[in-house]
């Protein structure tokens, strides 16, 4: 990657002041003239660079600082300190030239007009983003085809399903062909099928439009499928930045074996094979070392009569928890 970074953050800090109320009537009266504030370090000294065309996953627990970082990058929040540059702009200046080149999609917020067909919202965005007619038609055609929504863009948004709505939200956000795309929990609340559709779309979009994408998500699936690189944030600090596979190899030492047994067996018998997490006959869940997972599964199949066996990756939360735990040990 010899190109210059498209996004760069140096020592970014963002602190909030939060007001604490004392309990009770007395506290309420007291708060009329004196309020106690507490400083929350939402982002505390984070630096990274992102290069054109990358899809980067932003991982962290709730309140870790993911959304705050995205908001700083979008020019919505004024950083407490640090250098931020996106597409060569300082986001906070909120220059229209900058705003025309990126998009922020938040899973829980919508911009479509509820009572009108999505097409009306598209046309409004066309005017706001000053998209030329020819380009608008071209982009719209392509997006509609990628998401397969030809029949629904002229139907009132309130009559659409959640998944269809999300597709239209994406189109509305992407009509101006942004070079940089921030996706905040894009798949929240969607069913498994829709999640997959959206993931495929994001991947295709990245390839087709050469857009740089930052994605935050709770779902391991999203990040694992889309992002080669991941940045993990905890308590406002960056604790990992690199290949996603590295995290998995390094911290997901275990795999999960879910079994459904035919035989009546007891706990003790199973504990020999690995760490027994759950046991409620006929179901059992075992944690086994990653490398030996296949072998142990085979052994179980020969030793017992097993109705069903499944080898699963641990959830992102489990892996991140491992990562956090190891962090605490270091400190």
């Amino acid at each position: 990657m010899s190109e210059a970074p498209i996004i760069s953050i140096q020592n970014l800090k963002k602190y909030f002041k939060v007001y604490r109320k004392k309990p009770g009537l007395l506290g309420s009266i007291q708060s009329l003239w004196s309020r106690e504030y507490e400083e929350v370090k939402a982002v505390d000294d984070v630096s990274f660079e992102i290069y054109p065309g990358e899809i980067v996953g932003f991982i962290g627990q709730n309140g870790a600082g993911k959304t705050t970082t995205l908001k700083v990058l979008s020019g919505l929040l004024y950083p407490t300190s640090g250098e931020v540059s996106v597409l060569g702009f300082n986001p906070w200046d909120r220059k229209p030239d900058f705003q025309r080149q990126f998009a922020l999609v938040m899973g829980q917020k919508n911009q479509l007009w509820w009572d009108l067909p999505a097409m009306e919202s598209f046309l409004l965005n066309k005017a706001i983003y000053e998209v030329p007619d020819a380009e608008f038609d071209k982009t719209l055609d392509k997006l509609v085809e990628l998401l397969d929504v030809k029949d629904i863009i002229n139907v009132q948004v309130r009559k659409l399903s959640l998944g269809q709505r999300m597709k239209c939200e994406l189109i509305a956000a992407l009509l101006h062909s942004p070079k940089v795309l921030f996706l905040d929990e894009p798949t929240i609340g969607l069913d498994v099928v829709m999640q997959k559709v959206l993931r495929d779309f994001i991947k295709a979009y990245n390839q087709e439009f050469k857009a740089t994408i930052i994605l935050t998500s709770h779902y391991m699936g999203d990040v694992k499928e889309l992002c080669k690189r991941a940045i993990v944030i905890d308590h406002g600090q960056k604790i990992f930045d690199g290949d996603l596979q590295d995290i998995i190899d390094q911290f997901a030492r275990n795999k999960i074996l879910s079994l459904i047994m035919n035989d009546k067996i007891n706990q003790k018998q199973l504990e020999k094979y690995g760490q027994l997490k759950e046991f409620e006959y006929p179901k059992a869940t075992l944690l086994v070392p990653r490398a030996k997972a296949a072998k142990i599964a085979g052994q179980l199949l020969t030793d017992f009569s097993v109705a069903d066996v499944n080898i699963e990756e641990p959830t992102i939360d489990a892996i991140i928890r491992e990562l956090f735990l190891s962090q605490k040990k270091v400190h």
Binding site: K71, S74, G75, L76, R94, P96, D97, F98, Q99, R100, F102, A103, L104, M106, K109, Q111, I128, Y129, E130
Partner: peptide, 17 residues
């Protein structure tokens, strides 16, 4: 409700919008 964030990211005078 936080909807304002979307308005603020648009390439147009926010107060006007």
């Amino acid at each position: 409700n936080g909807q304002l964030t979307i308005t603020l990211t648009r390439p147009i005078n926010s107060q006007f919008l």
